[in-house]
Design a protein around this nucleic acid. Structure first.
Ligand SMILES: [Zn+2]
Ligand SMILES: [Zn+2]
Ligand SMILES: [Zn+2]
Ligand SMILES: [Zn+2]
Lengths: 144, 144
DNA sequence: ATCGTTAATGAGACAAAATCTCATTTAGTG
DNA sequence: CACTAAATGAGATTTTGTCTCATTAACGAT
């Protein structure tokens, strides 16, 4: 079953109404590697359901965040972006060229789950942002 | 030597002028466990140097972020907050009661550094946010 | 100590992002 | 089809962040 449909089921099962606006916002996140600002979500959602209002997009982003489907984050540039989050969502951000590399490593989730457990927390999900310098930028740097 | 003075030295050595406004913003972050919104930083900075303007606070936050001294983050609630970041800054956020627990574990930085290295990145710093449920909230939940 | 250069500043206009209100609509239920 | 509470969109409003520009002051040179 496709991700979007799965999430629609989750909404329904949690007792939320499945409206065209909510479905539009949800379907924007069909790919797992998007990091979108609220206004970008609005623009994309309108391609699917032109009538959606800004307020509804914000409300839906909040709803989906509360359900653990999306998660807000700032990838170094101070802008709030929303991304899908399954168990974990890990990034390498180059402080020089700003490229963002997605990194998924089981070891990571395992370690976090364990550390959280030590503190009495039960992990739902996690987001990590590692700021550094990518190889290309380091090479440019040493040359100059 | 105190943290704030150390950071002042860093600024100076990087060639930036050490103004009362910059020192005020810097001194706001004397404690390591603060996560402040820009307007909170402004209010606190004004207690030290009442003349600071909003624009300067934003400019300084950007400067300090660029230098790897501060880092913007959203702890679940979609508000951008700035916090000191030494090597890493790791949080457990309870999705139910919203409490934030700071977690510092060497294993974490080690693992991230290694994974980053595998991707050709040289880590400067990292921020992690783990969303979950704290013990108290889980106990409340099972009782009800 | 004084000077000159130039980065840095604060005020306030402006722009962007987010929230709130409320009259209207509609999804889900039977 | 009809009912009802939840959800919506429009637009006002608030909050957050940026930009401009005339003025100031940090810091190195003298
Ligand atoms: Zn991502
Ligand atoms: Zn790079
Ligand atoms: Zn923290
Ligand atoms: Zn809790």
């Amino acid at each position: 079953m496709h991700y979007t449909e799965q999430m629609e089921d989750e909404l329904r099962e949690a007792g939320w109404k499945l409206t065209p606006s909510r479905r539009a916002v949800l379907s924007v996140f069909d790919r797992h590697d998007l990091h979108l600002r609220a206004d970008e979500v609005l623009a994309r959602a309108r391609k699917i359901h032109p009538a959606v209002g800004r307020a509804t997009v914000y409300r839906t982003l909040e709803l989906l965040t509360g359900m653990g489907i999306l998660h807000p984050m700032v990838l170094g540039d101070g802008k709030t972006r929303y991304a899908r989050i399954e168990d974990g969502h890990h990034h390498l951000v180059c402080s020089s060229c700003r490229q963002v590399v997605e990194m998924h490593d089981r070891r990571f989730n395992r370690l976090i789950r364990r550390l959280a457990h030590e503190q009495g927390f039960q992990m739902q999900s996690n987001v990590m942002e590692c700021i550094g310098t990518c190889r290309e930028c380091r090479e440019k740097e040493t040359k100059s």
